[in-house]
Amino acid sequence: MSPTLRLLASFVALMMAMGIGRFALTPQLPHLISEGQLGLSAAGVVAAANYLGYFVGALDGMFARRPGQVRLRLLAGLWLCVLLTLASFWA
């Protein structure tokens, strides 16, 4: 896979993952804080963990060597993001 195509695929995947995370996490935090389930410090840790996940995913994609690995890791990361977002609904 060419570096340009890899960069474009990573950009699209990050854009989708951040969109899912942004629209799922952002509306939940004020409710969790107002209900007393999270304090401001804990909400900051949740937000930081969210961005740490994006960073780790980007690093993982960078170090994939074979084209099959890149595709598999990208798809796995996107589905993991969707599943964790759904899990946050039930939690």
Rank of each mutant, 00 (worst) to 15 (best):
L84C: 07
W79V: 10
Y51D: 05
L5I: 11
M18I: 11
N50P: 00
V46H: 06
G44N: 07
L74V: 11
S41H: 04
C81L: 06
A9M: 10
G57N: 00
A17N: 11
V56Y: 06
H31F: 04
A13R: 09
G77M: 08
F23K: 02
G61K: 14
F89P: 02
A47D: 02
D60S: 11
V70E: 00
Y54M: 10
W90R: 02
Q28N: 05
Y51I: 09
S41T: 12
A64R: 15
C81N: 05
Q37P: 00
H31N: 12
L5W: 03
A42Q: 13
P3C: 07
H31P: 01
V46T: 01
T26D: 06
G36C: 04
G19F: 01
L8R: 11
Y51E: 08
A64C: 14
A87W: 01
L7W: 06
Q28D: 09
F11H: 06
G21L: 14
R65S: 12
Q69D: 10
G36W: 11
M15E: 07
G77L: 05
N50Q: 12
Q69F: 09
G39F: 13
R6W: 14
A17G: 09
L8P: 04
Q28H: 10
L5G: 00
E35H: 04
R22M: 14
S2T: 10
V46S: 04
Y54L: 15
T4Y: 04
D60H: 13
G77F: 07
V45N: 04
Y54W: 14
A43D: 01
G19M: 06
L7H: 10
L86W: 03
P67E: 05
A91T: 01
L5P: 00
A49V: 11
A64Y: 05
Y54G: 14
H31R: 06
L7E: 09
A42H: 03
L8E: 03
F11L: 15
A87L: 03
A87E: 03
A9Q: 13
Y51G: 09
G44V: 02
Q37V: 02
